[in-house]
Design a binder for these strands. Structure first.
Ligand SMILES: [Zn+2]
Ligand SMILES: [Zn+2]
Ligand SMILES: [Zn+2]
Ligand SMILES: [Zn+2]
Lengths: 155, 155
DNA sequence: GTTTATACGTGATAGTATAACATCGCAAGA
DNA sequence: TCTTGCGATGTTATACTATCACGTATAAAC
């Protein structure tokens, strides 16, 4: 994906289509709330916080209480359509909707755009430290905060 | 540090001594609240949440409102005596009190112990993705969740 | 049609963090 | 000495994030 411009309608359509396919294959319910939340997340390459999502759902009459948003987000995260960005307490659509992976994020603190890269859970300093210590890695958080190319130039 | 047993009194004494030295050199105020919070964090190789710290401060008459704890934690984090563990919304004493570094954490989900490793901010998949994208990294979060050797054996 | 599992509606509450403003104490400078 | 500025604290209130608990609705499975 990266920070470059692109035809963004494709991101949304492809993301929804992939989720539909995945859910159909597994008899999972891709309900209106879940679909709508994924559309919101796909709507821009930035993360959204749970209460921003809840506000929009409320405006659309799709639910008004926090659990509605959190349940939809839990579903999307559990099935890999979205990821949680720990540094921001926020959520973002997955950019690699095909395979299960350990995401890594570049977070621009100026324009708030976030790009996702794939990473090997056992790689890097975390993997090295884990092997040295005898630690069994189940999940990793890798996030870098800084400036995207556009914002770095502007600065 | 790693998950092995060790004489833990040294961790506390050394950590406090290093902070005292650092603050004295820079004319920073190592106040009673700040010292006490650092002692709490050094007290075990687990992270503490802000409100656990606040509760203990309150019990000792050192402050009763959230800002007291958060200000002390901000100070300790800013000067590198402690780190924030994003995955846990919690704080932990730094295990390498000497130099400024990019911490990486191994977090045991069973016993809650956390060990810190040092890492290069520009290394790994985050660094690679950043170079590819032209992204300027200012800070990284690297955290692995899983089982420490003791808990993995017990499982 | 009944059972069973899954999703949703809703109110309450727990947990995390900051804003805003008053006060206090110390130390640099008049 | 005075005062002025600064960093640290005290305190109230509030914003933001997340989950529990329990009841209802829906839909697949039998
Ligand atoms: Zn992804
Ligand atoms: Zn940017
Ligand atoms: Zn450290
Ligand atoms: Zn353990």
């Amino acid at each position: 994906m990266s920070f470059h411009a692109h035809d963004h309608r494709d991101c949304i359509a492809d993301g929804i289509a992939a989720a539909e396919r995945y859910c159909a294959e597994r008899r999972l319910h891709f309900t209106p709330v879940r679909r709508r939340v994924l559309e919101m997340l796909l709507g821009g390459h930035t993360s959204l916080r749970a209460y921003e999502i809840l506000d929009r759902l409320r405006a659309e009459g799709l639910g008004s209480q926090p659990p509605v948003a959190y349940r939809a987000l839990d579903f999307l995260v559990m099935h890999g359509f979205a990821h949680r960005v720990e540094r921001l307490n926020a959520f973002i659509a997955c950019s690699h909707a095909d395979s299960r992976h350990a995401p890594a994020f570049l977070i621009c603190r100026a324009c708030n755009r976030v790009v996702e890269a794939e990473s090997d859970p056992q790689a890097g300093e975390l993997g090295r430290a884990a092997r040295r210590a005898g630690f069994v890695i189940e999940r990793t958080v890798r996030e870098a905060e800084g400036l995207c190319p556009d914002c770095a130039c502007a600065a």
